[in-house]
Structures are given as C-alpha cells and as structure tokens.
Design a protein around this nucleic acid. Structure first.
Length: 565
RNA sequence: GCCCCCAUAGUUCAAAGGAUAGAACAGUGGUUUCCUAAACCAUUGAUCCAGGUUCGAGUCCUGGUGGGGGCGCCA
C-alpha cells in the first residue's frame, strides 16, 4: 500500500533527523482533498516536545525525505503539516497489481491475533427480538472484518439456557401446555406458559420446586429442558440463516454449571469474595467507579449468578483458545457488569494477559425516542422485522422494476431489505442510540445500503452490456479528475478496515464505502466506459476494482449484492 | 443518594488532539438524443453553558444544565 510506504519513508526521515524520537507515532493519514491526498501532523507534536519551531523541523525532515516514487509533491503547510500529493502513475501501478490479485488494497495484520467474540446471546424459550439485532449484526460484522484482516476469530454464542425461568417453564409445561400450539409455534407457546406461571404468585413455590429438581439432575426435567433448548435452537437457526450469521461454538450458560462452585470457592480462598447477608460478594474498595457497588457471585440460596457464569466462561475460553482478546458485544446498560467482571478477573487471574473489551452499543428507539416497540406496545420480534424489511423492499423493487419476474423481485427484495436493515445499524456509531426509521433505511438516496447496492448493479450492468464478465488486466490511465479520485479512494480500503478493527466500529467502513460509491457515481457521470475507445480497458478495470471493493466491503458488513435491482 | 453514558444544522447522523466541523434527509434551483435518473450538480444552515490544559479542543480536564441508563440476590 502506498500509504504505508509513505509512512515508512517519513519514519525513516524523522529517525535520521531526530534519533531519539518515537517514530511509531509518526503517522500518515488520508486528508481533505483540498490539502492533498495524505497528511501527517506528527512533526508538530515532535517539535513541541523539543521546543523546536515546527515548520523548521518539517523543512529539515522533508530535506531527508524521498517519496518521489509515489508522490508528485510534498508540501509543508499551516503550522507544520506535511501534505502528500500522489503521483497518478504510482496509483495506477497499484491498481494494475490489485486487478490481478486477491489482495484488494489491504494487507494481513501482523501479528495475527486470536480474538474471541461473544455476541447475540438469545434466551431459550423466548422469541429473538429487536434487542438482539444490534449485538448479532455488529458481532457478525466484526468477526468478518477481523477475519478478512487475517486474525483468528472464534465466535461463541453464549445463549441463556439456564436460570430461574426454567422453574416456571417446567411447571407450565407439565400443567398447562397446549401440544397443538407447541407444534404450531413452539416459541410462542413457551412464552405463553412462562407468562401464565410467572403472573400467578401462588405458583411460586411449585415453580421453585421444579427448578430445584432440574438443578439436582432430575431426568424428566432435564429431558424437558433439553427439548426447550432444541426447539429454541431451531428458531435461532432460522433467524441466523436468514441473516447469514454463523457461530463456531454455541456454549450456553448451562455448559459451565459444573465449574461454578469451584469458581466461587476459589474466589473465597483467595479472599476476593466475602460473605455478606448470606450471599458471596466481591467488593472493590480501591476501584473508584466500582467502589460501593459490590458484585454478587453466589446468591443467598446457594445458586451462582451471571457474574460467576461469566467468570467460568472466561476461564474456559482462556484454556481452550488462548485468546489475545475477548470481545463482548452487548448493550451499553451492562457496562457496570463488565467492569465488575473484568476487575474480578484481574484479581483472580492476574497472569492472564488477554485484553477484555466490552464492545457496547446504544439502544434502538422508536420515532417517539422511546425504546422501539410495535404500535400496541409489544416487543418487536426479529423474524417479523426481517419479514417487514423484505416486504417493504419488495414494494420498492416492484415499483422501480415491474418487468422483472416475481421470483427475481423476491430475491432482490431479500438482499436489499436485509441489507438496508443491517446497514442502518452498522452505519451509525455503535455507541449512539438510533432512531429506527424504515423509510430512511430503505431510501434510494443517501447513505443507505440500497444506494451502495445500486452503485454495484450499475457496474455489473456495464459488464453485461459489454458482454463480458471481467476484464483482462492492462495499463490503467488516470487521465480525468474523476478517474484519479476514484482510483485514489480505492487505495484506502485497507485503512478503513484497520480503523474498524482498532475501535470495533464498522461505521468507519460504511463511511468509506459510501464515499467510494459517490466517487464511482461521479466517475460514471463524467466518464463513458463503453465506446470510450482506447480508454475502455482502463475504465473497465477501474469499474471492476470498484465493484470488487464494494462487494467485499459490503460482504464483511454481512450485506449481499445483486447484479440487477 | 451514588455510579455510568450521552448532548453537533429544522431532522437523522459523521468527525485518529489538527487545517475553514463533514454528509444525508427535508427546502430551493438545475442536469437525461449517452453504460439503470434508485443517479449527478449547485445552494441555505450546527459543536448545551462557564472555566482550564494545548501552537491547536466537537474531541482531554474541572464545574454546571438537560436527557437516558445502572446500582447485592434477573441477565
């Protein structure tokens, strides 16, 4: 990548001028086109530390800098910025190379890390709902992006398959289960019996008794419990199938049951956990934000809770996969829990160096800025949400392209509808709450999936018209501003991927792809491809590269493309 | 009460301590004998308040104001 070459050259020049400088912080980044193609502001910081004049330092560094292989000029601007302007021949050289390679403007990360990603985590016997969508989509996208960059990624769906709710479910199953309803819609029926038992105070003791039987290994209850899990997993698989989401492992909470007592005992022996009002708790007297907010690791009834399960899970992941990093993709409301979990783990396993990251996200709100619900105030089920996305997209496709046959329109609607839904989520900063709005996400203009998918179809349409599927590599000439701008933007795909990986924010990639589609649209307006004579092969190559980057970029967001729409 | 998160055009969102805060939607005006006009071009308009650190602050620190969330036996 040219960017990296320039950065390396700059680091060498800085090291020669200032032998004691930490050049790892000397970075080169894309910048506003009015200043150049890449920019570095590192010299201002270095000059400041040394009480030097930043422009003089810049002058001295530039005198030692040779980037003529890639740049037509390097300027010192403002208080001490370096602005780099790319040489068209250098850019077209990289494009030519990429055209005949699988490496699309990015390089594998060195070193490659092992990253465990914990996401989605639905509950057994409950419908997957809108609350699971951000975790599922974000986690899947991060997994894909980190894998593309060459990391070893382990995805683990930590489903909620254990806990007090099973007492009520078991009691309901034995007393009020409607077999036919279960057959027709198992999740709805399990939800119904749970609600029925839960709302009746007088059944509390009976439900508790069922729970105890389950916990002590009663074979009937274990078998019913397993049925509930299997029925739920079928539902999960259907939703994941539609979303194109997969997991390497599905290890639910129950997987760790046998380890919980040992974890608590270990914490007690090491004086990390202490008894309080019959429960075992961990306090954080030295940890400012956690002070006064103890975590319970064993309830007074002797049962462990989720903090303990998460500790056992951590231990298992550490032993099994030796991760460099573990990501927890969950709602921001669980921040306290994860701070406590990480703090306990640091004390319990100080030798473990894996970095633990809570990759949290904000809420999805309705137009009224309250949590997103249906009109009648119900939680929105995920399957219904996917149906509606496809249905709304089908209406649009039918309106825009009535000549396509029904099956083709259905398939396009599936790709466009699900793409729009995912992109609306991923294109926002994950930490923001965002307002769910069908019309905006499916809009045909603006920063939406349909806009990006449309850019792709326009490229494919050119190849269809040309009667070819791909173009054989040749010289690339970047003679117009639109061609040059598009080409230069293609080079930065890898930077966008790295930016996502550094902060676990796919919205950076969305922004990059949206800009790419914009550059392509301007190129498309200004530069005829077919019937452009000598320029045709060069322009077709540019089209093909843009299409490949769009497809791969959307692909790692979990979004498909289509040749026609 | 304590703790956490958030605050940017009319609206929805961006912004690696960097340059004149960037888009989109909505609004207004324009572009098609030409590869999909689901497009393109032009244009109006914003950092909650008060201090501080810095050559430079939407970004970091302190104190307010407003909103959301969490606080020992749900996850």
């Amino acid at each position: 990548m040219i960017h990296r070459s320039i950065q390396n050259a700059l680091q060498v020049a800085v090291a020669a001028e200032l032998p004691d400088a930490d050049t790892s912080r000397v970075l080169v980044r894309p910048c506003d086109p009015k200043f150049g193609d890449y920019q570095s502001n590192a010299l201002m910081a270095l000059a400041k530390q040394r009480r030097m004049n930043p422009r003089e330092l810049a002058g001295a560094v530039v005198a030692r800098l040779d980037v003529s292989e890639w740049c037509s000029k390097v300027e010192i601007a403002g208080p001490g910025f370096l602005n780099f302007h790319l040489e068209p021949e250098a850019v077209s050289g990289v494009l030519k190379e990429a055209a005949s390679s699988d490496q699309l403007f990015f390089e594998p990360a060195i070193p490659s890390r092992t990253i465990v990603i914990d996401f989605s985590s639905p509950n057994v016997a409950k419908p997957m709902h809108v609350g699971h969508i951000r975790s599922t989509i974000l986690g899947d996208s991060l997994a894909r992006i980190l894998r593309l960059l060459g990391h070893r990624v382990v995805t683990d769906n930590h489903i909620g398959d254990w806990g007090t709710q099973f007492g009520m479910l078991l009691l309901g199953w034995k007393t009020i289960l409607d077999e036919e309803a279960l057959e027709a819609d198992p999740i709805a029926e399990m939800e119904r019996i749970y609600k029925a038992i839960n709302s009746d105070e007088s059944l509390r003791d009976a439900a508790r008794a069922e729970l105890l039987k389950l916990q002590s290994g009663d074979s009937e209850n274990l078998s019913l419990w397993q049925q509930m899990i299997d029925l739920s997993q079928q539902q999960f698989d259907m939703v994941y199938g539609r979303l194109g989401v997969g997991f390497d492992y599905t290890l639910g909470e129950s997987f760790y049951n046998d380890e919980l007592a040992g974890v608590v005992e270990d914490l007690r022996k090491n004086k990390i956990a202490v008894e309080s009002e019959g429960a075992m708790i961990v306090e954080f007297p030295d940890d400012s934000p956690l002070k006064g907010q103890p975590a319970i690791v064993r309830k007074s009834d002797g049962a462990a809770n989720y903090t303990t399960t998460d500790l056992a899970t951590l231990q298992h992941r550490q032993r099994e996969w030796l991760p460099d990093e573990i990501l927890y993709v969950t709602d921001g409301r669980q921040q306290l829990h994860f701070q406590q979990l990480f703090a306990i783990h640091r004390r319990w396993r100080p030798e473990v160096s894996a970095s633990l990251e809570h990759v949290w996200f904000g809420s999805i709100l309705g137009p009224d800025r309250k949590p997103f619900k249906t009109r009648s105030g119900e939680v929105v089920k995920l399957a219904a949400l996917l149906d509606e996305a496809e249905e709304r997209a089908f209406t649009v496709v039918t309106e825009k392209n009535p000549d396509l046959d029904g099956a083709a329109r259905r398939e396009i609607a599936r790709i466009v509808g699900l793409g729009a839904l995912k992109y609306a989520d991923l294109s926002n900063n994950r930490q923001s709450d965002y307002i769910f709005d069908w019309d905006r996400m499916l809009a045909l203009q603006g920063n939406t999936a349909p806009y990006l998918q449309y850019a792709y179809t326009r490229i494919r349409s050119i190849f269809r018209k040309a009667g070819m599927d791909e173009v054989s590599a040749g010289e690339i000439s970047l003679s117009t501003p639109e061609e040059f701008a598009l080409a230069k933007h293609l080079l930065n795909f890898g930077l966008a991927l790295e930016q996502v990986a550094a902060e676990y924010r796919p919205n950076y990639l969305c922004t990059y792809l949206y800009e790419l589609a914009g550059h392509y649209a301007r190129f498309y307006e200004a530069c005829p491809v077919l019937q452009s004579g000598d320029a045709q092969t060069s322009r077709l190559t540019l089209c093909d590269l843009a299409a490949r980057v769009l497809k791969e970029g959307l692909g790692v967001l979990g979004i498909e493309v289509t040749d026609k729409m």
